[in-house]
Design a protein around this nucleic acid. Structure first.
Lengths: 382, 382
DNA sequence: TGGCATTAGTTTTACTGCAAAAGTAATTCG
DNA sequence: CGAATTACTTTTGCAGTAAAACTAATGCCA
């Protein structure tokens, strides 16, 4: 029989900071935590002991560092002491994952959406949550990522792709599942996942750009996400990147949406070749040297590069993280991208640190799970 | 006889926070400070009393608020208890101001530069500092703003307009004047002035764009300036704002430098009219409806608007502050600017809060003085 | 092999700085 | 004129901290 896990008790303050430090920065010794949080060694003993007794932290076996002195006893969180569900809602369906406290995916599932009616959608989500929760002892919290404006971590203010406005999805799901639920904008969720557990971990600032069905943008500065009331609208979708590019439905010429989305690239290649091709096929053709595909992909890469240059120039991040389902473009058009960056970057600037995350669909779900984790770990005051 | 002013003793911690709150947020009651810093009323008595006894703060006469209850006794800093000098260094000369602790200008002076030799320049600056310091009892610190890369608040790493690199201007001036000296990039200084005492006061985030001899950009997010090792290079000077615009010396078509600087506008208007005109005359002609000038100014305004849209989209600031010697462009081309903003902003976004600061040359000097004030008030740990 | 240096972590102690609570002050409103 | 309200002060006790002394576990070196 499994002993019930105690709640994440640490209230805001040094005790919570210690727990967070361990959660985010992996196994870490008491002395290292003391250095980072600027606390005395004595305080660290005092603060860590109750966390260990509560079963939240454990001492892992010491690693031999080869240095002189007593070896450290790194602390780590018991990652599978709690589990979370993260879901990504799109127009066609829902994809979901179960994760542990460190946002490692332990199960995956999906469901189709027949209707856009809020109640029907909530029903599908709840059913999926039940299915995902079956593989773990208990689910601590549920996070849902959605492309649109979300307020109070609970209400979908506006989600054009579902034709929703002011839908209290959070409450609906909490009622249906009995699991504490947070709703969040998908890019915010993705960015927070990179922030806590991804390529942005430990950085003071970074920017995120996602490629896929749409173009997403997130920013962390001074170790905190940058948001305002317009976040979630999709501010960079119509970013002008090529004055001679194709038109988008809103009448912008050569905007990000008309050149960088998967649909834009497949359409441009399909039109040029006179036959329907998929996204991966379009990129394959470019790799193989097919001239039209190559040109479309290079134009996109160059535009992407100029967009990255703009982000770098205006927000001076330590790193730029590229992600999303369509991120393979970065591999295929890397050279064009770097040319695009060079066009709009002063040659005296330092080289940009650009990393691409896996373009797996479940990354969006992990993001939603991270929002649930944050909400749980930090308390209601997110 | 004037009693010697005690040093700004508060060491980092709540005491310093209280002093800062009063310095930046004007006369403010103890209870209001307690609310803002999340301290108890008792703590505020304890913390403010020694600051008052030290002569740093004073109680100003209460303002009648009409509300019930005991009236508050607002605290204020003794602004003219200390004075600072701020200077702006350009290729032709130096402009300087003397200010009080709140960066109010109390004197102005300038000097020409005959030579770009570091020692000669330092001599001119020191002489100017002596002149500026004559009107006040004593000078607490000196700040110098310079268009280029500055490290450690002391060394001019690179200043192309003076053909300087690795000039230890800070030490040179401290030796020559005996006044603690800080060197800082001019845009950083300008932005900090807005942050503490200008249109950015009290905001969590804002962006600054200056127009003049060059294009400057500064950003504050989460109440702190955003900088990295590339800040000071002038990252936005070559921002592409019009694919059909004129060429800049670096070969960029329609970049900010080629369309928004004073030189760009006067040149474009002069060329069109076949005679030399100055900046103000060019703007006057545009106001009067002269077609070529109108077109040049409107093109610039539109480009400025698109640049503002880019800043707003990527950094979601609460406010955008426009400044610099050439800021009159904003008045003359306001309509075109707003059209440019609308082009690249999603119509669903909230209206941007845009303010223009006076285009006085001395604003740059105030900025430098603010850096000196910050360095003094916060201690060496800036 | 034993001492020494080094680093990690614990225990003890004393103290700072805080909030909470109770008290005082100064005003408006009825 | 007193009740309500808000601002500030004084008093008190306590929680969390650092500092110091101590224990522990390793590598290094003679």
């Amino acid at each position: 029989m499994r002993i019930a896990t105690p709640p994440w008790t640490p209230s805001p303050g040094p005790s919570q900071s210690v727990a967070l430090e361990v959660l985010i920065n992996g196994p870490i010794s008491r002395s290292e935590i003391a250095r980072r949080l600027d606390l005395s060694p004595g305080s660290l003993t005092r603060l860590s002991t109750p966390l260990i007794e509560a079963g939240l932290l454990v001492e892992v076996e010491e690693r031999v560092d080869g240095r002189a002195g007593r070896p450290s006893r790194p602390l780590d969180v018991v990652a599978d002491s709690r589990h979370f569900i993260g879901m990504k809602l799109t127009g066609n369906g829902v994809l979901g994952v179960t994760t542990d406290l460190r946002a490692n995916v332990v199960a995956t599932a999906s469901a189709a959406l027949d209707s856009r009616d809020p109640d029907a959608v909530a029903g599908v989500l709840a059913e999926l949550a039940t299915r995902l929760g079956g593989s773990v002892p208990s689910v601590t919290a549920l996070g849902v990522g959605i492309g649109g404006l979300v307020s109070d971590h609970a209400i979908v203010t506006s989600a054009p792709f579902l034709e929703w406005s002011e839908v209290a999805l959070g409450t609906m799901l909490e009622t249906a599942t009995g699991i504490p639920t947070v709703i969040e904008n998908d890019i915010v969720a993705f960015t927070e996942a990179e922030h806590w557990f991804g390529a942005g971990r430990g950085l003071d600032s970074f920017a995120v750009l996602t490629l896929g069905a749409g173009i997403g943008y997130g920013l962390v500065v001074h170790d905190r996400l940058v948001v305002n009331e317009d976040s979630g609208i999709g501010l960079v979708g119509h970013w002008p990147i090529d004055p001679f590019g194709p038109l988008c439905p809103a009448g912008h010429r050569g905007c990000a949406r008309s050149m960088l989305t998967q649909a834009a690239i497949t359409q441009a290649v399909s039109t040029a070749l006179g036959r329907e091709v998929g996204y991966d096929e379009a990129l394959d053709l470019a790799v193989a040297g097919e001239p039209a595909a190559r040109r479309v992909v290079d134009d996109a890469g160059r535009g992407l590069g100029r967009m990255i240059a703009a982000m770098a120039n205006l927000t001076v991040p330590e790193r730029i993280i590229l992600g999303g389902e369509g991120v393979r473009l970065v591999d295929v058009a890397g050279e064009a991208m770097h040319r695009g960056i060079a066009e709009d970057r002063d040659p005296r600037t330092h080289k940009l640190d650009i990393v691409a995350t896996p373009g797996d669909d479940t990354e969006w779900c992990r993001g939603a799970a991270v929002i649930a984790i944050q909400r749980y770990v930090l308390g209601r005051r997110l």
